[in-house]
Design a protein around this nucleic acid. Structure first.
Lengths: 196, 196
DNA sequence: CTATCACTAGACTAAATAGTCTAATTGAGT
DNA sequence: ACTCAATTAGACTATTTAGTCTAGTGATAG
């Protein structure tokens, strides 16, 4: 088993720790201890805690989210079904259901007080919104949804409400209830469905 | 102008600081400085930072939320309209639209890692969910909504998605967009409305 | 083999952190 | 005015924090 490069190991552990404990509550020392990496090594690769976490966001968090949300529609599938698939996948992910969306958690903690984090994180949120918007527009173009569907505002609604539902999961609900709540989002989309 | 009792002043300042910066990122010293209260006074009234913030949650945060969400239906108003009224009130509250719901922010930060906070906060969330549930049930009883409306799951959906939408406001949207997003929640409720 | 350079190692520092301690002050009741 | 408890005051402590510094190590190219 080849030894994992220090930088990569630090990003992995930083993701786990920051995801669960938050940015402020995670100490550099805790990351170093868990990763068994001496301080000098870390500060050789990253100039500060913030740089480490920003790199983690870009090289771990974002790719993980990209893997989850594909914004592509399978040939034989409706857009609605493809959203349903994503919700189902989310509900099956233990970490997501236990701790909520890591991107969202970081935003709630940092966006209001740190411009740099806010810029990075909200760019991704916007990118995801655009992805959903595109799918909705494709649905309109393909005659699945009515033209009256506002793809921009509905995409924002979908993204923010899903994350909201997910983030209260740990306290309110189990994995099953996420699916039930998210169904209401699909219901509101259903109102724009063209019937044949 | 009578001098505000130390304990009350500490609770007020603790609310402001923790709301905006979060629990971990708010230092006891920062609260003391802003409140112009010496350390000894604070530790006379509260045995720890955590006790102070828990008291703040019970004596400031919760009452503020209670004042906002009344769960009562005006004589000449539909349940739907009464939800709409609440959303409108939220959208007009500068702090809420800028920083999101303070209860929700604290939950996202602490619920996963602190049992005590989780217990206190999620009790309130459940109380609020019950309030909404009651209103929905009243709506069913009064013939406004169809019996097929699941008041329990829909109440959870409303609460969690509103907070989700609200918490991304700072990065994604302005006060106006909160109203637009929340309209979709009312749309999904509309599906259960009995037409005359 | 050796010079070089990227990386490792961890002791160290300065600042910030939550919390303690003892003495001074205040205010309410007698 | 006196007593006593509640409160204030802030210097102090122990710990943790992010970050620095210098010496060493190991791999690689010439």
């Amino acid at each position: 088993m080849k030894k994992q490069p220090t930088r990569e190991k630090l990003l992995d552990i930083a993701f786990e720790e920051v995801y669960i404990n938050g940015y402020t509550a995670t100490s550099v020392d805790a990351i170093l201890k868990k990763a068994s990496v001496p301080k000098g090594s870390m500060y050789h690769h990253f100039k500060s805690k913030k740089e480490l976490v920003l790199a983690m966001v870009k090289e771990r968090l974002f790719p993980k989210m990209d893997a989850f949300f594909k914004y592509e529609i399978k040939e034989d599938e409706s857009i609605t079904q493809s959203f349903r698939d994503t919700f189902l996948a989310v509900s099956k992910n233990r970490l997501l259901v236990t701790y909520g969306c890591p991107l969202y958690r970081l935003m709630v903690e940092l966006s209001a007080t740190d411009k740099e984090f806010d810029a990075v994180l909200s760019t991704k949120v916007n990118e995801m919104k655009e992805g959903i918007k595109m799918m909705l527009e494709q649905g309109i173009a393909l005659g699945e949804f009515d033209k009256s569907l506002n793809s921009e505002t509905f995409a924002t609604y979908m993204l923010t409400s899903v994350w909201g539902i997910l983030s209260l999961s740990p306290s309110l609900s189990s994995s099953k209830t996420f699916l039930i709540q998210s169904q209401y989002i699909l219901d509101s989309l259903d109102a724009y469905k063209i019937r044949v």
